[in-house]
Design a protein around this nucleic acid. Structure first.
Lengths: 173, 173
DNA sequence: ATAAACTTTCAATTTTTATTGAAAGTTTAA
DNA sequence: TTAAACTTTCAATAAAAATTGAAAGTTTAT
């Protein structure tokens, strides 16, 4: 397979993965394009390569910068902006995790905290209330654990020794 | 807060979380409703409580059954079907993880494996090709590690001792 | 065999989300 | 200050996804 074809397939695959996980297809494709481009690209480059409009390219690049996984790059003597993706995959994972935590997990945790304060009332049996608070509590515990574990493990994978050690030690999923 | 209000808020919050992670809002809401309902519900119950059509309720319940997190329940002497959610949150997490792996991660990994076979060609510099295969390789490694770690950690959290131990030992994210 | 009680399907419709493109805004150089 | 070279915005439009509801299909009891 030629490099161009391989890049095309990566962009397509990354876009598909993104849309399955709630990231717009185009945003994921812009990210993929920047990931596999050796140098920084201009808005026009992105428009050309992905066949999208200027507005669309601009919005999605801006969103990626918001996520912290794409950087503006200014070149002396050039007026337009160039963009490049963070290439360290562990850093990408960390940044995405942080952002999703902030945007989606934290708000849910707040709601869980509030509704776990549910009061006993004549309208519901004590058993029903207890079952509910138990359910909410176990979701809270699990989310907190998963959250912490994810961040820790990304750090762990950055270290070759721990990574290799764990791959040997952990049973297959 | 009354139990009903708390349940309503949970259903809303779970629906919002779902839609941010690529699960349809309604599917997540049906799941949430079943999670906080002590007994099994009929299609009609779901329609009433979430104010959705019969077709919609049926499709989403079926999808949840496909995911393995909702079960049909048949009652002797009743013709219609009742549905109940898996209440063990660790099992829910495991099943969701398995399904998402199968549907979204595995196909991407297949693509990554194929495109990592990219050949040297006159159209690209060896450096460019090497940078590409390095990028793809690090995504492959990371995905494999994360996958394995996630499954292992869910199992770990099922065990109170390990869970508590790790919470003490792992640094904060 | 028929009817009643359900479940499933799917074409039409509605709702939501993404995209366009042109106008408005900004920065730089002369 | 003006013009050129860009970037950003946003109302209109297009595309995608979810939803409805009625018809078709299925199962069970008689």
């Amino acid at each position: 397979m030629q490099l161009d074809e391989a890049k095309r397939r990566f962009i397509e695959g990354w876009g598909t993965l993104g849309s399955a996980w709630g990231v717009s297809r185009t945003m994921a494709q812009v990210h993929a394009l920047l990931l596999v481009s050796p140098g920084a690209l201009s808005t026009e480059d992105i428009m050309d390569q992905l066949q999208i409009s200027r507005g669309n390219a601009n919005m999605n690049v801006r969103a990626l910068i918001d996520w912290g996984i794409v950087r503006k790059e200014l070149r002396p003597g050039e007026r337009r902006e160039f963009f490049s993706a963070e290439k360290d995959i562990h850093r990408v994972a960390t940044l995405i995790l942080q952002e999703r935590h902030k945007r989606e997990i934290a708000p849910l945790m707040r709601v869980l905290g509030e509704i776990s304060q549910v009061e006993e009332s004549p309208a519901a049996t004590p058993e029903e209330t207890k079952a509910f608070t138990h359910m909410i509590g176990s979701i809270q515990n699990f989310a907190q654990f998963a959250d912490q574990a994810a961040a820790t493990l990304i750090k762990a994978d950055e270290n070759w020794f721990i990574s290799t050690f764990m791959k040997l030690m952990l049973p297959r999923p």
